[in-house]
Write a protein that binds this DNA or RNA. Structure first.
Lengths: 243, 243, 243, 243
DNA sequence: CATGAATGAGCCTTCATTCAT
DNA sequence: TATGAATGAAGGCTCATTCAT
């Protein structure tokens, strides 16, 4: 009885799913997860609520799909970054670069991510979406870890310092934290932050210097590295001014 | 012909407001902002819902007041920390100490804080509460700033490095970020984090070392400093093990 | 804080609860349980849906309350019937009379009762309503049982026949069945039933005769008994024609 | 220029209709009418929802068709029962036997039947299905009636008693009522009912005795009759223990 | 002042029915 | 003919907010 869906049908379905996610992302960002209303979403996409449920099992599923989509993009950027040829700290910098690029492209990603910390949220999400999310999480972490391990092997990180996972965590922490702080409207002005990305990068550098990750900031021209990263890996990152 | 409120009335009003906030905080922590029910809150405080509305304009107002209250407490801790007598980096450490103490005392503060990032939340809060929140934010920042400036004056921070506000921001960023990362359940295990507070402090140290804030970690016994901070400023911080 | 509700408030509340139940009963009868819509109910009573939920915990609770109310009325009638002074079979007849009176007053009670046979229904009802229902059920059954036992004691029922509970069940069965059959529109005409109540009574008599419950129909003037029952116990039963 | 449907097409259509009804019955029994989902039904039969609507006008129509089908089966059993050779009361017993056999084979038939008591249900059913249902109802009634009339002719029922239709009704009533009472979970235990079928038959016998339908229970070995009924008419009725 | 009954818009989700393909 | 994607009204229920008392 059931015919296989035609290619056109498949394509239309994918397009509509993307449409749903695009609008869901927008609404999530402005209203938060609990504030996301399927009525409003349906109105936005100009399809009925029933149609949304042909694509997703629950509201939680939608939010998780939005997040996973962003996370997948981030993972892709991270993996591209690990392919940068250079010193270990330059490769770490490439990941930091990727992170900033993601930040520019998905300025409010962290806010969405934060919304999903509650247990009940995960309980109501479908297994499929849960797995997809965890898969992408793992990809991110592994990229980072890979660079840290390479730095130990190359002797660029002093052997006795923190275990590699904690270094990865520290890098992630300073990045996430800087990102969040940069988003607090009042503080940006108060602290004279003009370029939030620059601040994130600065803070990353300080931490890596603190870790004694060679070569230190003062011993190397990382501006040149950034230009190479952009040229070789992330040509789309137009936010990095040349020179 | 409304009489001015008597002093007694004023006092009673303040007491009840505090009662509301105490219970609201508890409920916010367990259920989140959307999960906060005014029915439940009214039942908790043993006043009617109408009475709550004599104190606050909206649910958002209540949540904001809870957050502000916590922020005020944090500011107080920070200000106490600035009074620590010692090297500039020791005073910075005192602020880090205060931050950790706050973290221990208000383990879910960040969660509440995060809830309020959406625009619609702020739209529905009253001006009065909004201002109160910003006021307390400023106090925190100024305490931090004061220590950084003193470090420059003392020559403990190299003159050419970042502007002081950005150093403050970097410190706040690494702290906030570490805290948040430490709360992600999966990651804690994945990265082998046993003691989240220790991780926060480690990351702070790495950053300050990266800033070349003298004396560096390797040149000073900061454990002893911590013991002094506790003894002289925060005797209530029982989470710090002696020795 | 909470004042005790005034008498007037209490009265208003009871009146409204009765209003809800009256309309709920009507809607249940026309649409069945699943077809009962709280929107429609709210529209009927000209109160909001929220108000309904101040009185009942769930839709199931409402339906159960409707049924229990009718059942309570039936129990009252049964208990009054047991107080009839006369031969044991006359007392059984008084209960049959009560049952018919209830039937006339609550013509569609059985339909509602039938709706609630599913497990899920009971799962969703509140303990309070559940208990109330069972309480009333018990009262009905006990009245019946009491008369049967008295008949055995008086020797009006042959000792060797069915156990008393099964006699009660048989009486209830023939009554319920007759009632239901009488309600099937097509059959009434087909079988030439003019007076459904008469049919129910007839069938009861046949069964009691079959049980050899003395005095048999042909040995006693039960019309006279009916007149006495009405005169002494149920003066409100205007459906019984005198003579 | 639509061609008349070929015989093959007709046959296929009938097969599919039967398929739909088979699955619909199963789903109705497990979930009730409101719980019957056309999505689930379509999945079961492995045809699309649209196809179902080529056969039936509405969900109500499907349920009514299921019920009618069961009723047809019951009518068939009744007609077979009327062909039993024996005394009039033995033939009545054969119909009672048929009824019990139907009960055992379709244990939840009454539940489905009850679902359809609401006005709105009938309003939404098609004329065609409504008529089919009434037709089958009539067949059942006529079988019963035929036996009653024969009893009068044979002098087994006293001439002056009830009109024949009312005797039929009485028999149907006691059967339906007993069946329903037997299904009430609490009562079964309370009244010590072990074998619901036995109770139904007992009550039928009491009624027929009450009618003075000869030979009375005490004057005849109806167990032997039952064995003959099974042997000669309902060999498939394995629920009747031999002896 | 303080109350809490009353509100009603809003919540997420389901599903019988339609209709373009 | 058969499909199943799309619909959208309706479902039960919640709860922040108001206001007559």
């Amino acid at each position: 009885m059931s015919n296989p869906p035609t290619l056109r049908k498949e394509r239309e379905r994918a397009v509509r799913e993307e449409l749903i996610l695009t609008h869901a992302r927008r609404l999530l960002l402005s209203n938060g997860f609990q504030g996301l209303s399927l009525d409003e979403l349906a109105r936005s996409i100009e399809y009925s609520k029933g149609t949304i449920y042909l694509h997703f099992d629950s509201k939680e599923d939608i939010a998780l799909a939005v997040t996973t989509e962003a996370l997948r993009e981030r993972s892709n950027l991270f993996e591209r970054a690990t392919r940068f040829q250079g010193l270990s700290r330059e490769r770490a910098r490439a990941i930091g670069f990727a992170c900033c690029h993601f930040m520019v492209t998905n300025p409010d990603y962290f806010n969405i991510d934060m919304m999903m910390k509650s247990q009940s949220f995960w309980d109501r999400a479908s297994d499929k979406q849960r797995e997809a999310y965890l898969t992408q999480s793992g990809r991110c972490f592994r990229s980072l870890q890979q660079v840290v391990l390479a730095a130990f092997e190359a002797g660029d990180l002093p052997a006795g310092s923190l275990p590699p996972e904690q270094i990865s965590m520290a890098m992630a922490s300073v990045t996430v934290g800087s990102h969040i702080m940069a988003e607090i409207p009042g503080l940006k002005m108060l602290a004279g932050i003009e370029d939030p990305i620059k601040m994130v990068r600065n803070n990353q550098d300080l931490l890596l210097d603190g870790l004694q990750w060679k070569p230190l900031l003062r011993d190397h021209d990382y501006n040149a590295t950034d230009q190479r990263i952009r040229a070789e890996i992330f040509p789309e990152a137009t936010w990095l001014k040349p020179g």
